[in-house]
Each structure stands twice: as C-alpha cells, then as structure tokens.
Design a protein around this nucleic acid. Structure first.
Lengths: 161, 161
DNA sequence: AGTGCCTACTTCCCATTGGAGAGTAACCCA
DNA sequence: TGGGTTACTCTCCAATGGGAAGTAGGCACT
C-alpha cells in the first residue's frame, strides 16, 4: 500500500466535511439556487425586466411554458421543463394545467418563491453595479497574463516556514 | 423540406435573445456567480462559519490553498484551482505567492469580492430561514407524485407518455 | 375523414463538464 | 538518497446539459 500521510489527513477531513454536508440543508439549498437557470426563471416570473435599465417591473405574474421559453430563449426545452419541475417540487412555484383548446400550462411564483426572488434581486443589483469593474479586471488580467506567466518575481526574499 | 412555422418563430426569438444576452454583462455575471463553488469560496474567505448556527464570524481573512481545500472538502483540487483562478481574474480575490520552504499561496478577498460576499450572505440567510419549508414541500410533492403520477386527471390533456 | 399545426413535453445522441486520483516541480529533513 | 511537503497539472471516465427530433391530445380547415 502506498504511504499517505498528508493525503490521509485530507481524506479524513473530507469525510468529516461530507458528513456535515449531508446534514446541512442550507448547503443543499445553496446548490439548488446556484443552478444556472433557477435565477433566470425566478427573474422572469418575478417580472424583472430583462433589460438592465429597468430594474424591475414590480408585479410578478404567471407565465405559460411557451412564454417562458421565449423569454429565456437560451434555455433548452429539456432544461426548462426540468428546472420548472424541481422548482415546483420545492414549492417555489405552482404549475396549473388548463384544458383549453391547446393545453395551457401556467407557472406562477408562490409566496416562498417570491421571497427568494427578492433575495436574488440583490445579486442582480450587485451584478449591474459592479460588472464593469469586473470586466475591467478581467481584461487587465488577460493582458498581463499572456506575455508573462503569473510568475511574480518581486517577492524573492523570504525564506521562512 | 420540413415546414416549420412555430419552430421558426422560436428560433427567431432565440437569436434575438442570444444577441441580447451577449451584450448583457449582468447576465454574464449571474452565470459566473451561479457557479457551485464560487459562493462557497466566498463564504470561506469571508469567514462565514460553515456551521448554520453561527451566522458569520465576521472578519474575512486570507487562507492558503490547502486550508481552503480542507474547508471546502467537497471540492476537487481541479475545481478549486480553476475557480480560484477565475475569481482572481475577475478581481474578486488576490493570489499571493510566498516562496517559503514549501511554497505558500494565500488567497484573500478584495474589496470587490467582499461586497459580493455581503450580497451572497443574503442568500445564505434565506436558505437558513426557509430550508425546512422547502424540504417539507419536497416531501409532500414526492409523496403525492409516487402513488399516482402528477396526473390530476386534467393533466391528461397535456400529453405525457 | 384526413391532413396539418398547436402546445408542452420526452427521448436520443453527443459534446462539454467535473470528479478521482496519479503525477510533477521545488525544496527540506533525516 | 529517499521520503515528505505544497500547490498544482494531467489523464481518464462518468455525469450533465444542449440540440434536435419525436410524441400525445386536440382543433381547424378542406
């Protein structure tokens, strides 16, 4: 068996942490929320204008599947269905089927979903306020990293442990 | 040739939207933030206690690679490195290399990263406040969906298979 | 009656993503 | 000189997600 001392520690720490993770619902939710499309669907149903200028139209309303599909056109139908189902499962939105001429399925935020939407709006605001800053940093980083590697040669005098 | 009228509309809408997406930095940032590990790294560097009880230890501090790796043990080394790099690129944290005996690399939130962390903390709070509710909804949904399909008789018109 | 199109999915296929784990460079200690 | 450290990097492989096509129920038109 190959010796492992540091790796062992790491493994141990990991198992402890994993156990903690399994029991930590806030972490589970964080993962759920961190889904790429959840935020967009919430934003759409919460009636945030998709345009950065208008922060929010304010009134959340129900939308049909096709309407959502149009609004978040980047999403595949598969993902849209999947995400909507999981959000319904979590009680963040309701799915209503009306047997009209062509079936009509509408989705609407619940109170719970609405409260999450409010929270997420904070992130949207942050993004709008700081995106140019981030973009600038990104460009600077790319420009600097290409010619010379990330190698900083300035701190060369420190031999301690 | 196969005719497509509704599909055509959809495609058109999609292209319009995609064009919009490309030009919308807030959306780009949303995607970046929605990364599974970004929030966790920010939380770690922002010194949120990993335990749900203690909301936040308050003072953000710099951490070494190995320390982060231990703290977010669920993350693979690859992902950790990758995510840290992208966050550095965006100017959300700084990476400092000290050529000690074994190299020491420390990561620290910038002011920008700190402000984002504050925003994300709101989500953490939401998760902690509502997770039990979500969990309850989820169970109810699963319990109801298992014996009979989601089919509420009128769902039948929706055409599932 | 038959053809065609509608909505809201579902299914198949394949490219990309992410995890596990081993390997690497530079350096010290015994 | 061999082992051990940190912070990565690389390779292999399974899972995820997108694109496109298929499907079910049903009306409208001919």
């Amino acid at each position: 068996m190959p010796t492992m001392t540091a790796a062992q520690q790491r493994q141990q720490a990991k198992e402890q942490y994993d156990a903690f993770l399994a029991g930590c619902p806030s972490r589970q939710l964080l993962d759920r929320i961190s889904d790429k499309w959840v935020a967009l669907i919430l934003a759409a149903l919460g009636s945030d204008g998709p345009h950065p200028g208008e922060d929010c139209a304010g009134e959340p309303r129900s939308m049909r599947y096709s309407e959502l599909s149009r609004r978040l056109a980047g999403v595949s139908q598969k993902m849209l269905t999947q995400t909507l189902r999981s959000l319904e499962r979590d009680g963040l939105l309701t799915r209503t089927v009306t047997p009209t001429v062509p079936v009509t399925v509408t989705y609407e935020l619940t109170e719970l979903g609405l409260s999450l939407h409010e929270t997420i709006r904070g992130i949207k605001r942050w993004a709008e306020a700081h995106m140019d800053e981030v973009l600038a940093n990104r460009e600077k980083y790319d420009a600097h990293a290409s010619p010379e590697r990330t190698t900083d040669s300035k701190d060369r005098a420190a031999g301690r442990r």
